[in-house]
Amino acid sequence: MAQPTRPHLVVLTGAGISAESGIQTFRASDGLWADHPIEAVATPQAFRRDPERVLRFYDQRRDQVRHARPNAAHKALAGLEKRGFRVSIITQNIDDLHERAGSRDVLHLHGEILKARSTVDARMRYPLPRGGIALGDVCDKGSQLRPDVVWFGEAVPHFVDACDIVSDADLLLVVGTSLAVMPAASLLDHAPMDAPCVLVDPEAHALAPPGVVRLCQPAGKGVPALVRHWKREGRLWVPEVLLSEG
């Protein structure tokens, strides 16, 4: 006898979940862009103009990621998967905190800071278990390496894959994102009409579009609370009592 299909939780995470692990965000008033203009460190033009500055900026970010640790939200999502739930994570973050927490199905929309890639062949990627990227570090085709991240003005290569994942969701959980970064914010449009969508963020009331249930809590509090309900009931649902407390 065939096993019933497990309900599918799709999670879209943004900078807010990593900020609780101490990773500096871009858009906050004291964020990365306060000291580093986008056009100086996060565009293809910046890399052509001053590659050493760009590489130094991402080396600093890489060190920050290596010192960070998964928080309660990362661990709760990984724990839900270990309990037998089907969990797919689509993250706008370039850190590896979801993986270190134990999540196995993670799609990085904007790349991965702990990898380098070729400047002539985007398929050529190299892990960076330690250290960074220096001028003169080249791929197997002899071309300079760059951070494996999506810069402003570049296409998001995994966006179609992300749309396919969201279109299969039974419940969409959005965590720690302003829903202001395109095209990631448009992923909500690809969810099935009958799939509930929950936004967990301290500013959820201001950020959530119509039809999205708001849980105004930080990721490290709101996500574990939801996961506890789902584990207890053995199913995905929107616990109205919990949400009314947010």
Score class of each variant (00 low, 15 high):
Arg49Val: 11
Val238Cys: 14
Val213Ala: 15
Asp35Ala: 15
Asp35Cys: 13
Val65Met: 11
Thr13Tyr: 02
Gly131Tyr: 01
Gly102Ile: 00
Leu207Gln: 12
Met1Ala: 11
Arg49Tyr: 04
Val198Thr: 15
Asp30Phe: 09
Gln24Asn: 07
Val200Ser: 10
Arg104Thr: 03
Leu171Met: 06
Gln3His: 12
Ser21His: 04
Pro129Ala: 00
His190Val: 08
Gly31Ser: 01
Pro202Trp: 00
Phe85Thr: 00
Glu245Met: 11
Gln60Val: 01
Gly220Lys: 08
Leu172Gly: 08
His229Thr: 08
Arg117Ile: 00
Phe152Asp: 02
Arg62Trp: 11
Ala34Cys: 01
Met124Asn: 15
Ala19Tyr: 02
His110Pro: 01
Gln24Pro: 06
Ile23Gly: 03
Pro239Arg: 14
Thr25Lys: 13
Val41Leu: 04
Leu172His: 14
Ala204Tyr: 04
Val156Tyr: 08
Arg62Tyr: 01
Val174Gln: 05
Ile113Thr: 01
Asp95His: 01
Gly176Glu: 01
Pro70Lys: 08
Gly31Asn: 06
Pro147Gly: 10
Ala78Arg: 01
Gly211Ser: 00
Ala169Gln: 05
Ala122Gly: 15
Val87His: 10
Pro218Thr: 11
Ile90Tyr: 03
Leu9Gly: 14
Ala46Ile: 08
Pro4Arg: 02
Asp105Pro: 10
Ala2Trp: 14
Pro218Met: 07
Val181His: 09
Lys231Ser: 15
Ala116Ser: 03
Pro37Asn: 06
Gly142Pro: 05
Gly222His: 07
Arg130Asn: 08
Pro210Phe: 02
Phe26Met: 05
Ala122His: 14
Gln144Cys: 07
His8Ser: 13
Ala184Trp: 02
Val106Asn: 00
Arg83Ala: 13
Val227Ala: 07
Asp105Arg: 07
Trp230Gln: 10
Asn93Met: 12
Met1Ser: 12
Gly246Ala: 15
Arg61Met: 11
Glu203Val: 00
Gln64Asp: 14
Gly176Gln: 01
Ala204Ser: 03
Gly16Arg: 08
Ala122Met: 04
Gly14Ala: 14
Gly131Gln: 01
